[in-house]
Amino acid sequence: MTDVKPRIKVPKTAKKGEIVEIKTLVSHVMESGQRKDAQGNPIPRKIINRFTCEYNGKPVCEMVLHPAISANPYISFFLKVEESGTLAMAWHDDDGSVYKAESKIDVTA
């Protein structure tokens, strides 16, 4: 479970002004900090606490996550495409790691 890999579903093309759906899934334990191991010691919390998304460097949306979000967090949302560009997403872990994913969208006439 140490291998954290984001999977994203982003359309390759869109019409100008079209609102497209973005779907994301990351393999991550999202350890809540509420559980205890077999010896009764609390298992330390380790979750992705923040998700950010930018399009051509401009913020689109941001999510603050708490331990109540399920393991392998799934997030889907929308983006209004006005121009061709790159969608950049980042997942911020409690331990400071940042997992990134990018995808290009071309605007078609």
Binding site: I19, C61, A68, I75, S76, F77
Partner: peptide, 23 residues
């Protein structure tokens, strides 16, 4: 813990809607 998540939008979101899965 009462908090689940907070999802911040901008006008470039196009639509104020998101989905996730919770405990």
């Amino acid at each position: 813990e009462a908090g689940v998540c907070s999802f911040k939008f901008t006008p470039s979101s196009g639509r104020a809607e998101f989905s996730t899965r919770m405990r």
